[in-house]
Amino acid sequence: MSRDDALDALLTDARHGSRRALGRLLSVAERGGDAASALDRRMLDAPPPLWTVGIVGAPGVGKSTLTARLVAAAADGPTGPVPRVAVIAVDPSSPLTGGAILGDRIRMQGVGSRPEVFVRSMAHRGDDGGLARAVPIAIRVLGSVGVATVIVETVGVGQIELEIIHVADTVIAAMSPGWGDAIQAAKAGLLEVADLFAVNKADRPGVADAVRDLEQMLDAGLARGSGDGRAWRPPVLPTVATDGTGIDGLWSAAEAHREWLVATGGLQRVRDERIRHEIGRRAKDLLAGRIDARTAELDLATARQTPGQWAALVAADVCAHADAPGTSAA
């Protein structure tokens, strides 16, 4: 079977409910390269998932436990052969060896075995942006086979995670009470990306303080905001993921955010923005290698120029040869 036939067969099987085929397709997306591009081309006419939710926050705040709870909320509803809800749980890879221990699934055992649910663990695989490329394709694949809701869990500590979270229509930032968490969140850039805040582990002391700190920062205008008049003010909600307290409230607030997006035309705008972002990012990736190559070739002795002048020269050169061989975007 040719690669294209194999992909088509997997897509057909996945649309008929094969978990194995869906698992395979996500590996193709994850692996990148030509096969992933070929797969992504098949997504052009397919619907995206109805809703993509991101959950981001420091390690240990309870993202996976929250995710499991939200999945349970999202899984209720009419069931077909295809899972209604999928989770993509991202963990870091070891920077030294490239390997990873992916443990998020441990917290999703209860829901992960339900037929309405599909859980996939993904490793960061280094800082080359591979995962940031793979996750949007994976989400399109999930949508195309009929998954309604996709939840992406990721540690919000680095550039890549913030890139990944860009794929979500609705972003929930999770934190736990404890001094400085809100400040940490602000530093990590979470305030700007989040549409909702879950102050998890509300069974622990310090919840009220954490909620107040966050509210103050939001009032000070540090939030994601929106340009079209009726701005969305991110709500701050205490939760106890381990026993489910506050989960209903969090889920309805998330749904309210989605409705707000739809009502204000924001959903399409967010998604368009996202595609532009992805295009821009990938274009930069494509050019980056050639810029590096061209820079390495420069004979600095030939002319006395400032670095800025050299850069302009490199950029002009690279753009002039944008259709050079070996750079096809597939």
């Binding site: 890879s93 070891s94 390997g99 992916l102 055992q109 663990s121």
Partner: peptide
Amino acid sequence: TLRDAGFEVIYLGLRQTAGS
């Protein structure tokens, strides 16, 4: 060991069944 040999380990841990 496997992580450090470059594998991606999906760690399911305790109390699993053949089905899970």
